[in-house]
Amino acid sequence: MKHKQFAEGPMRALFFAAACVSIFFVVLICAFLLASGVPAIGKIGLFRFLTGVVWRPRNGLYGIFPFLLGSVYVTAGAILVGVPVGVLTAVYLARFCPKAIAKLLDPAISLLAGTPSIIFGFFGLVVLTPLTERLFGAGKSILTASLLLGIMILPTVISVSASALRAVPQSYYEGALALGATPERSMFFSVIPAAKSGIMAAIVLGVSRAVGETMAVMMVAGNSTAVPAGIASRVRTLTTHIAIEMGYAEGLHRDSLIATAVVLLVLILIIYFLLSLIKKEK
């Protein structure tokens, strides 16, 4: 019996070509950003670009330091809000959660993970901003953006650290119990230290999500170009800075925004490099 012959060789080549498309696009994206961004940095001067505190393109002042600082502040705030809640929730979910509550909590976390950032942004605008305004007189500010981003990174932090906790051998937990530790102590002093690198990975992923977020931050951070003075001040991050001005930028102004994206990309790559170091440690 003769079957239809499959074209083994050419198909293999096709699959390989498809796999190479990702490499192609990474190179293409970097090439496009660098081609416009690097000459702009050259014209402005790397040092003046990164450390300049005044952003006034009409006067030829291109300092993105306030936005770098903004990204750092907002991300740090998101970590302060999101990581403790996220990791503790993961501990609860991985060990103490009764089945009935898990049936509620699991889909809730998936819902949160699937919610588009524009919905978060709108929620921040209509709920969190008036709330922080009334409580702390902050309104659109680093504080509000941090709170919102803290909620947004929750699903990442929870799911990655919960799977790290679940991957710890059961014997660690049982051993601690056998030595007379309470369930909570066993979890916190035996299982969590063993899952340390996984939890660190969860935090780093949360950081990368917070650094890269644009729409939600844009709607609640206030977008001032000044160097932030405190957590109640209005701020721009690298991502929002690009998104706000790209609509009307031209010439060197536009290229300086692409250069900002290069800085953002370098920052993200550093974060992912740290992540790969953590993974190797495992």
């Binding site: 990702s22 490499i23 696009f25 990474v26 293409l28 994206i29 496009f32 950003l33 416009s36 990368s208 650094v211 890269g212 977020e213 644009t214 991502t239 690009i242 998104a243 790209m246 925004l257 692409i258 994206a261 953002l264 990309l265 993200i268 790559l269 992912y272």
Partner: peptide
């Protein structure tokens, strides 16, 4: 490459698509 693509913020895709 796939991990790098997955980690890129959407604003970067926006700029790339624009350019």
């Amino acid at each position: 490459a796939a991990e790098t693509l997955a980690g890129m913020p959407s604003i970067v895709y926006g700029l790339f698509g624009m350019l």
